[in-house]
Design a protein around this nucleic acid. Sequence first.
RNA 1: CGGGGAGUAGCUCAGUCUGGUAGAGUGUCUGCUUUGGGAGCAGAAAGUCGCAGGUUCGAAUCCUGUCUCCCCGACCA
Length: 424
Amino acid sequence: MKLSNLLFNSLKESPKEAKIISHQLMLRSSMIRQHTSGIYTWLPLGFKVLKNIENIIRNNQDEIGCNEMLMSTIQSSELWKKSGRYADYGKEMLRITDRHDNDLLYGPTNEEVITDLFSDYVNSYKGLPKYLYHIQWKFRDEIRPRFGVMRGREFLMKDAYSFDLTEEAAFDTYKKFFRSYLKTFLDLGLQPIPVKAATGAIGGDLSHEFQILANTGESELAYDSKLVDSNLYEKSYEEITAMYSASDEMIDKSKSDVIIGRGIEVGHIFNFGTKYTKPLECFVLNKDGKRITPYMGSYGIGVSRLTAAIIEAFHDDKGIKWPINISPFRINIIIHSNSDFIADVESIYHQLITKYDNVCLDDRDLSIGRKIKDSELIGIPWTLIIGNNFKEKGQIELISRSNSDKIFLSKQEIENFEFEQYTP
RNA sequence: CGGGGAGUAGCUCAGUCUGGUAGAGUGUCUGCUUUGGGAGCAGAAAGUCGCAGGUUCGAAUCCUGUCUCCCCGACCA
């Protein structure tokens, strides 16, 4: 993409409402724009990032046999009245009345809808287990939205739901999702800390939060140092949960030898048995033709919150430092606005876009210095400068955003350069 | 919901106390000169001063009401 086509204005100063670094950088780099309290428009750059994160999550869900689908944002209140949560959810739920005076709501989560759906489509034990998920916008009318998309009212969430025949099978499923979540966050370049958690409005007796360490995080954490050092995906569920970790009110104050820190909750998984299947009268027939109530779990990842969490983890005083598979662009080519060698630039640009699908060319009518600053602010992993060095020595300068390394390459060398292998 | 703060140009803010034609920086536009770390010069456009009433010859400024946003707290998959 040519940057002259992009809806993008970098800001030198941070809008005053932004208090934390991720919010400031998202506003300064034209990723989002606040529409009203806790509700944001995702601008082209932010939307690209959001989709990249979404895809990494999607790939991991598909890998464990999860079915992607899409449930509506607006729900009927009927199922919620049946499950008993219509009253429980309180003011956090945005309630809507339609022209026929029916009670509707903007979905804050989907246990009721999915249980009802499952109930209609699966009637036999042969249909179990089933894993279903969607990536959809939710609305929770938070008392106090803050920190940009970190705690918005409208937010994008991946939520998965599992149905199993027995309690044991449901626990195996829970462990499967647990491990899948570790891999998902590692794929996103993050070190997740799984912590035992309270189950809140979702219910059940087994639950883990996945936290990303950050000083600006809203949860207090206490955890075993081994949880940070090790590659958790190589360990079993039992090995990991044997290590101490807890958040907020679950923290055992008498515990020593633990690290106290702060984290951002980016995922939460629940195993809650028949909490919804029972009141919603969901059942399947077993081999003997007897009615069995399926055991459920639900598994959430805050997709829009992750964009902010990743920035909290990857930034410096110049701007964002995107991991390569999340960055809106992989490579940014910077040229003089009245470049003498447009033909060379075009040929390099086309070579690269056939090899990598997200390369951009900064063809805007701005000084080189400004373009470098913007590239750093946006956080593009590789910046290619085709300028004076190219004119004088035929050299293209390649700058790594992660460590500021500079490599000089000829046009020929750029075309054969394996960016993948130099991923920081 | 309790406590605090703020709404003036796209962004950051001054002006409000003490009423008298709407300001700066930055960004934007035009032209020229430029181009290796947010370039220089010259010129220009840009705001019903959140909204509604009131006081006054005259209101961004004073009074009343109202809306919105932000911060602290309580709350939170």
